[in-house]
Computed example of a mutant assay.
Amino acid sequence: MRIAELNIYPVKSLSGITLERATLGVRGLAYDRHWMVVDQVGRFITQRQMPGMARVTVRLERDALVLEHPEAQPLVIALERRDQPRLTAYVWDDTCQALDEGEEASRWLTAVLGDLRGSALRLVRFDDEHRRPVDSRYLKEEEAYTAFADGFPFLVASTASLEALNRELQQKGLVPLPMNRFRPNVVIEGSLAFAEDGWSEVAAREGHYRFGLRKPCQRCKIITIDQSSGAIDVPGEPLQTLIQMKTQPLRPGAYFGQNATLLEGAAQTIGVGDELLVS
């Protein structure tokens, strides 16, 4: 087996960036979910509430985060700035310390996305001094932390699982879907469909990094949103098909991919084409 694809999503729920190589960190691939859109009281906002977030594209330059939208001039945010006002942000039940990227970013996001129930939008950056632990109920004696991801620093998926899902969709007369519907970080090829649900660890054959697969990823309405247009072309799909496939027979709901932690390899490089071992 090998790595087929690497992706980061610097701003939670905005478009992703596909990479050939990335630096591993305890909180995820470098810059993954390092920023987040919040409302005026700091609650996280995603495509669940605002599907149009998918249309905001993201670039990382040498010294800047750049957000782009067809209806606005690009927004440029300095990568290394750390003097912003601090505020409290909320991801599900977790409280996070964050840095507010300011009024220009707030005006830009609100202009291109609209307000949310009367609340202007703000862009916040994860405070590197803050530690947001992964729920210990899912860990196996390791410590794990994440930034603004829903709950885990990495999401692992496989090309074979997507192919199996697409076969089911095509039998219903629906078009096959790209992997970006599922917003994974690490995509693996060369396995059987949904084999990842039985793995405990994935490691580089060369031994310089090792992931722990800790929790099946239950999917939400975001996977029904076309990540290029922000549109929902077929309401309820592929959620309904995944539920019917019972990829997790003992769990109700739709599941695709595995949430993971980094067991070994912080500051190491991971790359497309890396050979993998699983256990």
Rank of each mutant, 00 (worst) to 15 (best):
Ile3Arg: 06
Ile8Lys: 05
Pro10Met: 09
Val11Gln: 04
Lys12Ser: 08
Ser13Leu: 06
Ser13Ile: 05
Leu14Phe: 14
Gly16Met: 11
Ile17Cys: 09
Thr18Trp: 07
Thr18Leu: 05
Leu24Ser: 07
Gly25Ile: 00
Leu29Glu: 04
Tyr31Phe: 14
Asp32Gly: 08
Trp35Ile: 01
Trp35Tyr: 15
Val37Leu: 05
Gln40Glu: 15
Val41Asn: 08
Gly42His: 02
Arg43Trp: 09
Arg43Thr: 11
Phe44Thr: 00
Gly52Tyr: 05
Met53Leu: 14
Ala54Met: 04
Ala54Phe: 03
Arg55Val: 13
Thr57Tyr: 07
Val58Thr: 15
Arg59Leu: 13
Arg59Pro: 03
Leu60Ala: 08
Leu65His: 03
His69Val: 08
His69Leu: 08
Glu71Val: 11
Glu71Trp: 10
Glu71Lys: 13
Gln73Asp: 15
Pro74Cys: 10
Glu80Thr: 10
Arg81Val: 12
Arg82Asp: 14
Gln84Trp: 11
Pro85Gln: 11
Leu87Lys: 13
Leu87Asp: 04
Thr88Leu: 10
Tyr90Pro: 00
Tyr90Met: 08
Val91Tyr: 00
Val91Thr: 06
Trp92Asp: 10
Asp93Leu: 13
Cys96Glu: 08
Ala98Asn: 11
Ala105Glu: 04
Ser106Trp: 03
Arg107Cys: 07
Gly114Ala: 10
Gly114Lys: 13
Asp115Ile: 07
Arg117Gln: 14
Ala120Cys: 11
Leu121Val: 11
Leu123Phe: 06
Val124Pro: 02
Phe126Ala: 01
His130Ala: 13
His130Val: 00
Arg132Pro: 08
Val134Lys: 00
Val134Phe: 06
Arg137Gln: 12
Leu139Ile: 01
Leu139Gln: 00
Leu139Ala: 02
Leu139Tyr: 00
Leu139Cys: 05
Glu142Cys: 00
Phe148Trp: 05
Gly151Ser: 10
Phe152Ile: 04
Pro153Asp: 02
Leu155Ser: 03
Leu155Thr: 03
Val156Phe: 01
Val156Met: 06
Ala157Thr: 15
Thr159Ser: 15
Glu163Leu: 13
Glu163Asn: 15
Ala164Val: 10
Arg167Met: 10
Glu168Trp: 05
Lys172Ala: 11
Leu177Ser: 01
Met179Thr: 08
Arg181Ala: 12
Arg181Val: 11
Pro184Glu: 08
Val186His: 02
Glu189Asn: 11
Glu189His: 12
Glu189Met: 09
Glu189Gln: 15
Glu189Ser: 14
Gly190Arg: 04
Ala193Asn: 12
Asp197Ile: 06
Trp199Ser: 01
Glu201Gln: 12
Val202Cys: 05
Val202Lys: 00
Arg205Val: 09
Arg205His: 08
Glu206Pro: 00
Tyr209Ile: 02
Leu213Pro: 01
Gln218Asn: 09
Lys221Phe: 12
Ile223Pro: 08
Thr224Pro: 05
Asp226Ser: 04
Asp226Lys: 03
Gly230Tyr: 10
Ile232Thr: 14
Asp233Cys: 07
Gln240His: 10
Thr247Gln: 05
Gln248Asp: 02
Gln248Lys: 12
Pro252Cys: 07
Pro252His: 10
Ala254Thr: 02
Ala254Cys: 05
Phe256Lys: 00
Gln258Cys: 05
Asn259Phe: 05
Thr261His: 00
Leu262Asp: 01
Leu263Ser: 02
Gly265Asp: 04
Gly265Asn: 05
Gly271Val: 06
Asp274Tyr: 04
Leu276Val: 07
